[in-house]
Design a protein around this nucleic acid. Structure first.
Lengths: 347, 347
DNA sequence: CTGAAAGCGCTAACAT
DNA sequence: ATGTTAGCGCTTTCAG
């Protein structure tokens, strides 16, 4: 049915091997003359290589896999875009799997990607802090690597993988200091679930910066939740409720360690008629595309999402595979102050 | 290196064929006893099927491809998520390609997906109105279909494909009528590029509804631009400038036929200190996740993005492949009025 | 530089 | 019900 390399070879009057070399072979060992003839036959017949067959023969596919929580989430969407672009540049297609951060599904996804013999796997989700979970994932990835697979991680997933180091902690600390400089002293912070390393890293940055100024978040002013809009909303509600019940004054600044969460925070504050930034300053993290369009424009920490994805692919595809730590890419995090933050009490 | 089916068969003391049937075969023709033995051996050895080999042997891969403009765009991200979920449910992985709406790249992507022998291709981007472009794409897809590939389109891409029909026109008309009902009479509309069918469909809906009320947009009050934030911003700027230069009053309602555009519109209006909805009402289209968090909360038309992606996969994977028109899915569009729209002149 | 032939790992007739 | 065996389309030694 389909046109095969054999058809092309016959049409061009050359052997299968020559046709293969002319079209897809890496080694330059075909006369330009024959090569041209083959190429001509190829598109005269509308030849399209059979990728699975190539993958089988070379025992390495022309795809790269991406593991992430949710493509529809702007953070991951940005990364997926970068991975896809870099993959395309390398002539590869990208296989993306949304796991909702469920380790079981991640494990399953890794196995599938492995089965598909993807050239590399990009770990875009957060690493976990739960040892038993890590172990299973590491084992699956180790099996994959043993068979020649490359894996690159975005944010630290341990020393076994090439990693695009993201300045999560530093960024969070810088953001916190910016708020401190504005004069804030009463903070609330909303972070992700304890099991997510990224969330903990960011939190560490905040706490460290706070500590430098001799501050510690009061009981109830540190909330953990999923990195979702709804999670952020609920966390903000809890913060207000806790403050009111205990008769404590509201914090003057709340740091949500994800822009999506921050969107929820803003929504909750609006619903409660608490003015931002007049009564409470709000900051997020990631600088997703619409951060600047929120009400008010969200102060946040900018991460080069697409670039991170591209870096990861570059790391994974790099020749040799020598994994010197020095080769790890580094993604910077830049504080972007917009309208959702202001000095406390100026109004 | 890798554990193969042969290894499993040997370990279990059965033939290759039996092992194959026990593990991946569809036909129930293996004793439960042997089958169990094979499965035991399989995971004792850590067997993972070689997907490319399976694809080659069955001449059909375990992947489905998605063609879209940009995964990082919330509209497409939502669709990609739906496609990925539905694919996963069918045991497939999804290959996503961002083409930025460039026909050349789409063509290239189709060829690659075809080469990878994906089980189905989901056309998530808009169809084009340019015949010469359509033809090339249709040819590439026809070649793919001839070799057993299935294709499903989201929004109308012609009668050659299964399609998830999206109520773009109807939704746009309904939205317009809602604005009309609010009392608006001076409209501006920002749509996408002429070459995109989706943009034209939505525009048709608006114009039709306007026409029902005896209205037609004045010169300059109909702007075409890319469906991007920046495009929306620039278009809004032009609208204001045109109005001022010609001494015409500003429109009281502007309809941006994409939420992303609408975000840009809101930004421009804010920059010019034009109050929304007091001076101008603004509405978008799609209801992307953050639409409700814009300033002010954006009135729009809700599309079930993820569902659309799922439908497309279901259509494409459906047995038989009989493409009665009656089988096409239909995605409804629901008007959602939020704070960015109000009756004109009430302030 | 080119061709012949042996697989890559699996499925699917075709026997038995 | 299970085993044998011939491919699937391509890459890649190995000869020539």
């Amino acid at each position: 049915m389909a046109v095969t390399l054999g058809d092309v070879a016959r049409h061009a009057g050359v052997s299968l091997a020559t046709a293969s070399r002319a079209l897809n072979g890496s080694a330059r060992s075909v006369t330009e003359e024959l090569s041209a003839k083959v190429r001509a036959s190829a598109d005269a017949l509308g030849y399209l290589p059979n990728a699975p067959a190539q993958a089988l023969a070379r025992s390495s596919g022309a795809t790269i896999g991406v593991l992430l929580h949710d493509v529809a989430d702007p953070y991951f969407g940005g990364i997926a875009r970068g991975v896809g672009d870099a993959a395309a540049r390398a002539g590869l297609l990208s296989l993306v799997t949304s796991t909702d951060g469920d380790p079981r599904r991640e494990l399953e996804a890794i196995r599938m990607l492995h089965a598909h013999r993807v050239r590399a796997i990009v770990l875009a989700g957060s690493a976990y802090n739960d040892v038993s979970v890590i172990q299973e994932l590491d084992e699956a990835l180790a099996a994959y690597q043993e068979q020649g697979g490359r894996v690159a991680a975005i944010t630290d997933h341990g020393p076994l993988y090439d990693t695009v180091e993201v300045a999560n902690k530093e960024g969070a600390a810088a953001l916190t200091r910016a708020l401190l400089d504005l004069g804030h002293r009463r903070f609330a912070v909303i972070t992700g679930p304890e099991r997510m390393r990224v969330a903990e890293d960011r939190l560490d940055g905040v706490l460290e910066a706070l500590d430098e100024s001799g501050l510690t978040p009061v009981e109830g002013m540190l909330q953990r939740t999923e990195f979702t809009r709804e999670g952020g909303r609920a966390a903000m509600a809890r913060i207000v409720d806790v403050a009111r019940e205990s008769g404590t004054p509201l914090p003057t600044a709340v740091i949500a360690l994800s822009d999506i969460c921050a969107a929820g925070v803003l929504a909750e504050l609006r619903a409660r008629d608490i003015a931002v930034p007049e009564e409470i300053s709000v900051a997020g993290f990631d600088d997703i595309p619409l951060a600047t369009d929120l009400a008010p424009a969200l102060s946040t920490v900018r991460l080069p999402l697409a670039r991170m994805g591209e870096f990861a692919v570059r790391l994974a595809l790099r020749e040799g595979g020598g994994r010197d730590l020095a080769d790890n890419s580094h993604a910077s995090a830049e504080v972007v102050l917009r309208d959702s933050t202001a000095a406390p009490g100026v109004y």
